[in-house]
Amino acid sequence: MTMDMATDDPVADYIREQPAVVAATLSAARAELTSWSPTARGVVLVGSGSSMNAILATAPSFAAAGRGPVLARNPTAFIAEAATLAGWAGLAVILSQSGASRTTIAAAEAARAAGMAVLIVTGDGASPIAALGLPMVVMPIGAEPIGPKTKGFGASIAAMLAVAERLGAPLPGLPGLETALADAVEPARAAMERFATAVPALDFLMVAGQGRLLGIAVEGSLKVAEMAGIPAGGFDTEEALHGRFHGLTQNSAAIFLTADAAERAEAARAVAVLGSLGIQAGTIDAAGSPGLCPVPALPAPFQPLAAVIPLQWLAYHLARGRGIQPDQMRYPGLSQKLAIKTDQQP
């Protein structure tokens, strides 16, 4: 399967391409970073939308690099704080798959003006952000000219892990990463089709996770909103337990992402409580324990790559179940109307 194929079902194609794209991106980013040797301490990770979610999923690796404090900021917040942040943070890593987000481009310019070292991570080497002439990693994603990004999200995680590794956080050896992810794709598709069928009148989806999986919870909820047009929210698990259940109905559902025994026990209690209220709920365990969907047990840095696949398929099936094309968002042209992109992005 080629990375640039175009069919009548692009989202499904992109999800299936994701394992190969992840492996290619990890390899390419490592090669591109060979000559990049920043000495700065203090790191700010900047992005919005799916890019911010990839940042949340990889921030622990940046912290493990031992380069001092690590902060995640949306571009607008970073711009407002750039002068202050430059007082202790010497490096800004700017992530933008499209390379066309107006505020992300402005954030890169603000970081440079503040005297920070800057690294751009993008999927388009000819994009407006690439034209700034800053050090750059280009992710070999191939075509993904639709709004709800899937394979580009996986690539973003892979590229950011490579950057963190270059800063001093070695990745565990896993030569079978692509195979492990590829083997998870079809079981996830079937499992999440069953879950989508069980909630035909879904009015809200809660997705909860913590640590690296918080970014996946938020990303999963974003995909459901983008593809299926269903209200959804991603929460830190502890926050989800404090009052959020009162906003759920018998037509709502909740998914808890877990990665260790303590998280599994907490999620099991939550699922039991919601079940007693007639609310559909379940777990997806990134460490390979049984749940709604089989997920391969991978080392911690790679767990978000596996955990996101079921949520991408869930969004796809929820859209299909409502007669919606998953690649066609409910309100076309919002990026232009909201003036958040520099060109004709979805």
Rank of each mutant, 00 (worst) to 15 (best):
M1F: 08
M1N: 11
M3I: 13
D4P: 04
M5L: 13
A6D: 14
A6C: 05
T7I: 12
T7N: 04
D9Y: 03
D9P: 04
P10C: 00
P10L: 11
A12D: 05
R16M: 00
V22M: 00
A29R: 14
A29L: 15
A31G: 09
A31Q: 04
E32V: 04
T34N: 06
P38E: 07
R41P: 01
R41T: 13
S51L: 05
S51Q: 04
N53D: 00
A54S: 08
A57T: 04
A57C: 01
A59S: 09
G66M: 08
R67A: 00
P69L: 02
V70E: 15
V70Y: 13
A72G: 05
F78Y: 09
I79Q: 11
A82G: 08
W88D: 13
W88M: 12
A92K: 03
V93G: 10
V93N: 12
I94T: 10
L95R: 07
S96I: 08
Q97I: 08
S98T: 10
S98P: 09
T103Y: 01
A106Q: 06
V118A: 03
I120L: 04
V121P: 01
T122Y: 14
D124G: 00
A131L: 04
P135H: 15
I141Q: 07
I146D: 13
I146F: 11
G152L: 09
G152H: 06
F153D: 01
A155C: 12
I157H: 10
A158R: 04
A158P: 14
A158G: 01
M160V: 10
L161S: 10
V163G: 02
V163W: 15
A164M: 06
A164W: 13
R166L: 15
P172I: 04
G173W: 04
L174K: 02
P175Y: 06
G176Q: 07
A182C: 05
A184R: 12
A188E: 03
R189T: 07
R189S: 15
A190L: 13
A191H: 09
A196E: 02
T197S: 01
T197W: 08
V199R: 15
A201V: 13
D203M: 15
F204H: 01
F204Y: 10
R212A: 06
I216D: 09
E219C: 07
E226Q: 01
M227V: 15
A228V: 05
P231S: 14
R244S: 06
Q250I: 05
L257I: 09
A261W: 02
A261N: 01
A267H: 14
L277T: 14
L277E: 15
A281H: 15
G282Y: 15
I284Q: 01
A286P: 14
A287G: 10
G288W: 07
P290H: 05
L292H: 14
C293Y: 05
C293D: 08
C293F: 04
C293R: 06
P294H: 05
Q303E: 01
L311S: 08
W313H: 11
L314T: 10
L314I: 03
A315H: 04
A315D: 02
Y316M: 02
Y316R: 01
H317M: 00
L318N: 05
G323Y: 05
M329F: 02
G333K: 15
L334I: 11
Q336H: 11
Q336K: 13
L338E: 08
L338G: 06
L338W: 10
A339Y: 09
Q345G: 12
